[in-house]
């Protein structure tokens, strides 16, 4: 066997070792949370990679709490509303910013970048005032409104980048056919923007689903909370005996749908990007 072949084999082994390492690193904490959530409370403090005995007590415990079910419902409503608003406003804005030359475009882009760099805390007291004056304090609608501060700039920014990359010929053809900007956007660009919208929509969804600071500050009662706050406050009961079993069960419950979502959308994102928007 030549050194060349040996080197090739070594490279293959190294490559696969790297892949396995990455897989382990990425998946292990989630796997361990699943294992912990399935353990009976008596076994909780025995460290093991595979549970020697298991039951669903922690899940029963979690789902018997109406406040947790309510938090899941709130999170779903908030996240979907936020994605819808961000994509709708973001799509129209990105068409204007990506395809039309007009005075003040750079300024608008700068403003968007400026807002996206907003530390959420920087607007906390002012936003608190706005939400209270709109009577949205302790109301998921207040969260939907406030979440546009971080989902919208991001969506607009990414969609504009994609918009700019679409071929000019498409739009010229539309203009030649006498299409209005609205028709151009919805009939010509929208079908091509789906991969980009899947990407940004998923990012917006996850950002909204994950958000903690606003949800913690702008809601007060159990029935209005979203899942992250509910999970963070599960541990609030006692300083010494954290209910790790239920915490892990709740964590798994809110994560599994997201993981499924990511796997479905991921194929779409990848195929959409590689297929290319226009051929010829």
């Amino acid at each position: 066997m030549t050194t060349r072949q040996l080197g090739k084999i070594a490279k293959r082994i190294g490559f696969w070792a790297l892949i396995i390492l990455i897989m382990l690193y990425a998946v292990f904490p989630f796997y361990y949370a699943v294992v912990t959530s399935l353990k009976p409370s008596s076994d909780l403090f025995r460290v093991e990679l595979w549970p020697s005995s298991w039951n669903l007590d922690n899940y029963v415990h979690i789902f018997s709490q109406t406040s947790f079910l309510r938090a899941i419902f709130n999170s779903i409503v908030v996240a979907f509303s936020v994605v819808f608003i961000a994509l709708l406003f973001g799509l129209t804005a990105s068409y204007a910013l990506g395809r039309v030359r007009f005075r003040g475009r750079s300024t608008v882009l700068l403003v968007i970048l400026g807002v996206s760099m907003f530390p959420q805390v920087a607007v906390l007291s002012g936003l608190f005032e706005v939400i209270r004056s709109l009577n949205l304090y302790n109301n998921p609608a207040g969260l939907i409104l406030s979440y546009t501060i971080f989902t919208l700039p991001f969506t607009v920014w990414v969609l504009t980048t994609f918009m700019k990359q679409l071929p000019m010929e498409l739009e010229e053809a539309a203009i030649m056919d006498g299409a209005t900007p609205w028709v151009t956007l919805t009939k010509v660009f929208l079908p091509l923007m789906w991969p980009a919208m899947a990407t940004t929509g998923l990012l917006a969804f996850i950002a909204a689903w994950n958000e903690f600071l606003f949800a913690l500050t702008f809601t007060l009662t159990d029935t209005q909370r979203t899942v992250p706050v509910a999970i963070a406050l599960l541990s609030g009961g006692s300083a010494y005996e954290l209910p790790w079993g239920p915490i892990m069960a709740a964590s798994v419950v809110v994560t599994v749908p997201l993981v499924v979502l990511v796997i479905i959308f991921q194929r779409r994102i990848v195929s959409g990007l590689t297929a290319g928007a226009v051929k010829g």
Partner: peptide, 23 residues
């Protein structure tokens, strides 16, 4: 592999903090 790598991203920050706090 691609799906597996995306898992940490899909997990809410609060949840990942709790998972790691436990680990």
């Amino acid at each position: 592999v691609r799906a597996a790598v995306l898992i940490p991203w899909a997990i809410p920050t609060i949840v990942s903090a709790q998972m790691w706090a436990w680990m």
